[in-house]
Design a protein around this nucleic acid. Structure first.
Lengths: 141, 141
DNA sequence: TTTCTTGCAAACTTTTTGCACAGTC
DNA sequence: GACTGTGCAAAAAGTTTGCAAGAAA
């Protein structure tokens, strides 16, 4: 997993005929490098430090765009919690049902086992979302 | 998978200290037996045929209650699509990204392979959600 | 210059809440 | 009779949209 560069982001945007604006760059940078599945609000608050005039609408529009391109996935959990997941390698979202914290789980064996699972499904698989509910350390106390 | 009886539903409700009302019974019956992951609106429209005075609020309250008890899962997909999934056996939601239709996928091997996956995760697993995106027959044309 | 994007405010959708009345146990 | 649930209307929260001004190509 290497740190994505601005040039790579710009290329990605242009490949998809989107213009590279500073706001988009900032949002892409933040989301694609984040490991904690931020919410739209968190993204907005963070980006606002550098771009005080940015609006929530722009954040949503950019996130929608990234979802269209296929660089991130929207993960909706309930009415008030949507999180954005940069589409990296195959992973499991380990979700604490109490505090709603999300951790990624990856392993070498996961790829192999997942292949076994989807090999039973006919047709081309375009993507997946795997959530597992488990109390986190703090909430288990 | 046997058809759940009213008595069983009543027992389930009482075990959890909820009162058994006709509205609740109707909603539980419909959701627990449905195989197509209905939306709150669909549930409301259906139940209204027999209980014309029922309100959407009651539907949501009952669904929330069933989620608390653990009999169903809310599956949120995007801002306008929440579906309710009766928690039966382990299964994969096969979702068409175009028409948002949902099919369940179950197989004997799935249980075994899933066990292999979660055996790598430490701690007690409380539940899971597995979505796979694949164009349905109609949309593939 | 042309086209796309931003940012504001308003609109929209779904879901939740407060409360008086009614029903369950 | 005590307590919980229903159903209405209103509120809430998150997300989307229309549009004029601005920026990118």
């Amino acid at each position: 997993m290497h740190k994505i560069t601005d040039d790579e982001i710009i290329t990605l945007l242009k490949e998809n005929r989107f213009k590279a604006t500073p706001q988009r760059l900032a949002i892409c940078r933040f989301v694609l490098e984040s490991h904690d599945h931020p919410s739209a609000e968190q993204i907005y608050t963070t980006i606002r430090k550098d771009y005080p005039t940015i609006s929530l609408a722009t954040v949503y529009k950019t996130l929608g765009l990234l979802d269209t391109i296929g660089l991130i996935s929207e993960l909706r959990f309930n009415a008030t919690h949507t999180r954005y997941d940069p589409k990296m390698s195959l992973h499991i979202n380990i979700i604490c049902p109490k505090c709603l914290n999300i951790d990624d789980f990856e392993s070498n064996s996961l790829n192999k086992t997942w292949q076994a699972i989807i090999s039973d499904i006919e047709g081309e698989i375009l993507g997946q979302r795997i959530d597992v509910y488990k109390l986190c350390k703090n909430c288990k106390k």
